[in-house]
Amino acid sequence: MYDSGKIILGLIIFVGLFTSPIWYDLASGKAADKPNLVFPTKEDQKECVNTAEYMREFHMDLLNVWRDEVVRKGVRTYTSNTGKHFEMSLTKTCTGCHSNKAEFCDQCHNYLGVTPYCWNCHVEPHSAEIKR
């Protein structure tokens, strides 16, 4: 093999980069970690605006529509599939039940590196302090 020093160095860099998740996860030791969501407790558990499956996949679309409806059209009432009426408000409706951002929103968002810009404007809820 010619230029074996350079070739081997290059190959080590190549294999290192393409296997970097293995070493990274090994070093962090968090590969088995999963998001651990804390759901609203029994007494303040109300019906959500949609099913859990729908909310898991499409909550961002829903919030985006709500934002546009409220801010641009002034519509504030949302009628769910079950016919119930909700106020279109992140602070009052959503975080009214899911009152701890760190134990609910952040769990999946941090796990997947999602950085939503909700909290650029909205106040972050903290379960103990919230009073409505």
């Binding site: 968090k30 796990y111 997947l112 950085t115």
Partner: peptide, 18 residues
Amino acid sequence: HFRYFMEPVPAFVPFLQD
């Protein structure tokens, strides 16, 4: 896609996403 491969998510991923 490294946000799926690495836990915790490395800092360059949110930077690139933004």
